[in-house]
Amino acid sequence: MDQYLFIKLSVGVFFTIGLYSVLYKENKFYRFCEHIFLGLAAGYSLVAIWTSILYDQWWLKMTGVPAEGTSKMVPGYFMYAVLLPIGLCGYMVMSKKHNWMSKIPIGVILGLWSGQQVKNWWTQYGAQIYGSMQPVIPTTWSSLSRPALYTFNEAGAKVPLSPDAAAVIRSNIYATQALSNFIFVVTLVTALSYFLFNFELKGKFLRSFNTVGRWLLMVGFGALFGSTVMARFALVIDRMSFIWNEWLKLGR
């Protein structure tokens, strides 16, 4: 058993190094690993397509499941059999004469997708439109920025505010928050203006609107880039740990 685990780990390390070797340049070792990878992946797909998709979602629903133990009987719905001929139409793409028939299953898939888009549009974007209508007039001028939810006692240590006082602070909009909200709305509208295709933006002001829109998009993209870095580096560190800690049993 321990021997088996060592072999299994070694296989993993071998292929990891093989695939990494492409970072230097394309080579025979990489080609070797790549083709095995593609073969195994295609093999796995062929297994998983039946065992985890078609068997459960098609075959069992078509033939039903008899009652067993505490689980109840599930009736079989023979109409699922219709899907097989529709699917087979796709294979007509190989035929020179009847290749148009491959558009039938494609049409069904795309038709379902299209209907869903129209149906779901509001659920997806309605809340976002509402969420963008941020208030920009401060409700209080007692402080320009939002006060902290704690104060200092005589000893100089932090003490939380009473719940009532904290609730008042939470319910108010302060000037700095209002300013942030205003920047939010302006960013949204300028960025949206960048995506107007059929209106020629004439004049210096409108064109600069467009340019600023693009800059603000870049700020958003930069932030997105930065926030995925941790997850990606964690993976490469884990690979190193797989080699050094788990396989060579060093550095534990």
Partner: peptide, 18 residues
């Protein structure tokens, strides 16, 4: 490639720092 090698070396060393 220089950057890649540096990354491999540094992350490997880093594992032993703990």
């Amino acid at each position: 490639r220089v950057l890649y090698v540096v990354l491999v070396v540094l992350t490997s060393i880093g594992l032993f720092l703990k």
